[in-house]
């Protein structure tokens, strides 16, 4: 009896089988959806390669049409991260290591709440409030720092510049970066923190010695996730930015580069035929960029985990 049970396969329970098939299905669904999007973008984007220039907003071919948009997308996203990352790390450190627990918790909730605000609301806020308030600042920048090409001007009178769009984007991605880095800062082993403190480190020195090195890979992936959001953000940019599709590093003028996502949102209603294909092709480029960013993030994280192990 015991010998025969030993060789018999363990009984498959119905519940286990159902559950394992359900999870497998869910996993496959993601792959199928991703493949479907990629295939759609490729098929619909292909005709744009032979599009006449009047369908491409005056651009000679697809490359000259998409590249300025790619430039604008990257510029806005990178600017947003430059603003958001220090801010987010600072807020995360305050919540995890500086503020007393009574204050840290509500502060954390507030930051999470920022992430829940719809992007249209950010767009309205950027359009009706931020840009107006920043107009004098842009005039000042042109006057006093105009020798730096970034602030060459002429300063926008509406304030709807790429810098305004980046500031709004920064505030949108900040909660994501804050939430992730805060969790990682909190996970720093007490052992490492105490090692630093016992050597006579001040709080900031302890953070530099123990917390930041421990959190390095987490910070990178948080920033990359923020970058993903900034690259793909549509509504806020479309509403705030007064775009003319140029390639320029001038951050405060009336002529601004557009971003892929905002361009699609703004042009799609008026586009027909091959012009739609061109928009889809630009969408494919954005798809690839975000893909690459995500893979780069994973690669960076995996690499730093290997060196730490």
């Amino acid at each position: 009896m015991s010998a025969s049970t030993a060789v018999r396969k363990p009984r498959q329970r119905v519940g286990d089988r159902v559950f394992s098939n359900l999870t497998r299905l869910a996993g496959l669904a993601i792959l199928v959806a991703l493949a479907a999007v990629a295939i759609f973008l490729t098929l619909q984007g292909l005709p744009a390669f032979s599009a006449p220039s009047d369908k491409l907003g005056g651009a000679a071919n697809l490359a000259t049409y998409v590249l300025p948009l790619v430039f604008g997308t990257l510029l806005a996203a990178v600017l947003a991260l430059l603003i958001a990352t220090p801010l987010a790390l600072g807020v995360a450190l305050v919540i995890s290591h500086y503020a007393p627990p009574r204050l840290a918790r509500p502060l954390g909730y507030l930051v999470d709440l920022l992430a829940a605000v719809p992007s249209v609301v950010y767009g309205l806020w950027g359009l009706a409030f931020v840009s107006v308030r920043l107009t004098p600042a842009y005039a000042w920048l042109e006057q006093h720092l105009g020798w730096i090409p970034l602030f060459g001007g002429p300063a926008s009178t509406t304030g709807r510049t790429i810098l305004t769009a980046s500031i709004v984007l920064a505030i949108m991605v900040m909660p994501i970066i804050t939430a992730i880095t805060r969790e990682i800062f909190l996970q720093t082993p007490t052992l490492n923190e105490e090692a630093a403190l016992a050597l006579g480190a001040t709080r900031w020195e302890m953070i530099r010695l123990a917390v930041l090195p421990y959190a390095r890979s987490g910070i990178v992936s948080a920033v990359m996730l923020g970058l993903g959001r900034a690259l793909g953000e549509t509504m806020a940019v479309a509403m705030v930015l007064s775009a003319s599709g140029v390639v320029t590093f001038d951050l405060i003028s009336n002529t601004n580069p557009s971003t892929i996502a905002a361009n699609i949102a703004l042009k799609f209603p008026d586009s027909t035929g091959v012009a739609v294909n061109a928009l889809v092709a630009s969408g494919l480029v954005l798809f690839v960029i975000t893909f690459v960013v995500n893979f780069a993030a994973r690669w960076v994280v995996a690499r730093s985990e290997r060196t730490q192990a």
């Binding site: 630093a196 016992a198 050597l199 006579g200 090195p213």
Partner: peptide, 29 residues
């Protein structure tokens, strides 16, 4: 902070800084 610089401490579990080299660990203080 000044007190801890004068009075060194060794813990129950070894806790060198994980991302630092042996050289930098010794020099941390």
């Amino acid at each position: 902070v000044e007190v801890r610089r004068q009075i060194g401490m060794v813990f129950q579990r070894p806790n060198p800084f994980p991302t630092m080299s042996i050289y930098d660990n010794v020099l941390a203080g």
